[in-house]
Nucleic acid binder design. Structure first.
Lengths: 204, 204
DNA sequence: GCAAACATACCAACTAGTCGGTACTGTATT
DNA sequence: AATACAGTACCGACTAGTTGGTATGTTTGC
């Protein structure tokens, strides 16, 4: 048993798990303390407020996911379009578990708190937009390689991929199953392939 | 001044506005009463609980949006594919106002409450899935007309359109602007056109 | 010895929901 | 016509429990 993890980190992990499953407002400080195995004194020693924990958890989420995607195998192909398609495949492969386990902390929290807490909104927006930005280089390179001068920007396509994923999480929660999210990944992959002139179904 | 609207309807309208803007949990019964101009006694006379109002509001939302889309002009084209594309255009045209004004009640509430309240989850899921179902007939007809035997189902494409829209709302809230949602509509439209062999950019 | 990391007890504010009562309408009885 | 009664809509003070946050004390690592 590694109880070694310090209280602050356990609180961050608890925030990710509980906020994603129950939402920000419905999750109480007591629940967070219980899940992290700390007392209220420890909570407010490390975080000035529940909101501050939410912001810190967003930054923690951004760092964790950045590391995950930076080390993921979808960067291996030499062709930028293949990397992009492999990214969608990777996102689809990540859909293992319940909606609460696979959904995005930033998307879940920002939808609920974007008006009530500007700090939380900005922290969550940074997560989503920074991650989308990591896709732009490959999209631009793929455009050049395929001699494409599209009427859409690499940035808009990068954001569209995130919109599809966020929406897939919403529908997964509505149906309490992730199958619908996998199908949206398939549609997104097909769209990207067709954008660059690749027939995703070269049979009939 | 038509103060004539009965208390029950004013509470439903207040629920749609406040739940979409603040989320379900963060909205208090007192806030709902104040927004509707009724007292707490009236609230619990018409609804057994806050949750019951949420469910009734979901049904009300489903009826309102069904009526809006049933009477919308995108059904006019004789060609099913044109109707489908016109639907996406119509959804894009609806994006006028703040994220809270244009976002989906069902998507907002279900993301927050899908675990805490099965009744709310089912009511919201019904909104989304019933609306998606209204698109399936046109998708199927378009497949037949274009002699398409795709490896995706009309149902999955219908749900994908809803995923794109729901995700677009999430990103709109994150950036506190709807421009990003419009761009996702453009990508969705382009995808549908390409699926059926139409070059959305027949210039160069 | 001293500051950071916790723990315990507590509080004021707020929460959803309750409850006895009022006002108004329509209907049946006398 | 007068009365009695029933049903619905509504009112607002109240409560039991919960909320985020605080004040103060104790332990631990260096």
């Amino acid at each position: 048993m590694t109880k070694a993890a310090p209280a602050r980190n356990r609180l961050l992990d608890a925030a990710l798990a509980l906020f994603r499953a129950q939402g920000y407002t419905a999750t109480t400080v007591d629940q967070l303390c219980a899940a992290a195995g700390v007392t209220k004194g420890a909570f407010f020693h490390h975080f000035a407020s529940k909101e501050a924990l939410g912001v810190a958890a967003a930054e923690y989420w951004g760092e964790s996911t950045s590391a995950l995607f930076a080390g993921a195998p979808y960067h291996q192909p030499g062709d930028p379009l293949q990397r992009l398609v492999a990214y969608v495949d990777f996102r689809k492969a990540l859909l293992r578990g319940t909606p609460a386990q696979v959904c995005c902390y930033a998307g879940t929290v920002v939808q609920e708190m974007y008006q009530a807490s500007p700090a939380l909104r900005e922290a969550c927006a940074a997560c989503i937009y920074n991650h989308a930005a990591t896709l732009e280089a490959d999209i631009s390179a793929a455009c050049e390689q395929h001699r494409l001068a599209p009427d859409w920007t690499p940035r808009s396509l990068a954001l569209h991929t995130q919109a599809v994923l966020q929406g897939a999480f919403v529908l997964a929660k509505a149906s309490d199953a992730i199958a619908v999210a996998e199908q949206s990944c398939d549609h997104l992959k097909r769209y990207i392939q067709m954008l660059f002139g690749i027939d995703p179904n070269p049979s009939t």
